[in-house]
């Protein structure tokens, strides 16, 4: 059973927990996966998101999230104007995806140093979200837990070395998922953790041989 603040809550900007609050969290998640300020956003909306995004302020909420705002941020309403002022350019497109949740967005971000991220996720109800694809890797990320994301060469022992580091720092893994595009190439690992990993932990994971990148993705 849920807790009291799942029922009396969340505090949010209206009008819809799925189309506004959840959209803001999706945007925020994409921003955290990118790991730096975004200067360009291309967003494809599918299903009910595509049909009703203007009436629900889904576009404003996504952009607000991409600028780092929480779902209860009063500036969410003016997010599009704010984006212009802050040098974030954006485009929305309506698309039809195969077998996607009706409230799905595919968010392509370019960061200030040129980093890119492609995040596909859905707003699954009550403001909850599920990110299902990052940069082509199938994932399952709810944003409810802080996470550690790695991209590494798909070789024996890499995963063990990363989890050993976490265990040494006494960081408990709640959920874990590894996804690769094909055998022996690169793989993405997402570990949802009970506590936010410290910067040293993330850096140490990033130094493991065959790990190309390790990044903390805080809970949203």
């Amino acid at each position: 059973m849920h807790g009291v603040f799942d029922i009396v809550g969340p505090v949010m900007i209206g009008p819809s927990s799925s189309h506004t609050a959840g959209a803001a969290r999706l945007g925020l998640m994409a921003r955290k996966i990118l790991g730096e300020r975004a200067v360009r956003a291309e967003i494809n909306l599918h299903g009910s998101f595509a049909q009703t995004y203007r009436g629900h302020g889904t576009d404003k909420a996504l952009i607000a999230g991409i600028m780092g705002m929480e779902p209860d941020d009063m500036r969410l309403r003016e997010a599009l104007e704010l984006a212009d002022k802050r040098g974030l350019s954006y485009d929305f497109r309506q698309v039809e995806l195969q077998e996607a949740h009706p409230n799905t967005a595919v968010i392509y971000l370019v960061g200030e140093t040129g980093r890119v991220a492609r995040v596909r996720g859905a707003s699954v109800g009550g403001g909850n979200i599920l990110v299902t694809n990052i940069d082509g890797y199938e994932v399952e990320l709810s944003g409810q837990y802080p996470a550690l994301l790695t991209i590494h060469h798909d070789r024996p022992g890499v995963i063990t070395r990363v989890t050993q580091i976490l265990s040494r720092y006494e960081v408990n893994i709640a959920f874990m998922r590894v996804s690769r595009q094909s055998r022996g190439e690169t793989a993405m690992m997402i570990m949802e953790l009970d506590d936010e990993p410290a910067t040293d932990v993330v850096e140490e994971c990033g130094q493991v041989p065959d790990v190309e990148l390790a990044r903390a993705v805080p809970a949203v």
């Binding site: 029922i7 009396v8 809550g9 969340p10 505090v11 949010m12 900007i13 209206g14 009008p15 819809s16 927990s17 506004t20 609050a21 302020g57 404003k60 209860d72 009063m74 969410l76 309403r77 009550g126 403001g127």
Partner: peptide, 21 residues
């Protein structure tokens, strides 16, 4: 109405029913 103009509300239990409690 505040919910519909993108104001701040407490979902209770949802945004659509946020005025009743």
């Amino acid at each position: 109405e505040v919910n519909a103009v993108m104001g701040r509300i407490v979902a209770c239990p949802t945004a659509g029913s946020c005025g009743i409690v």
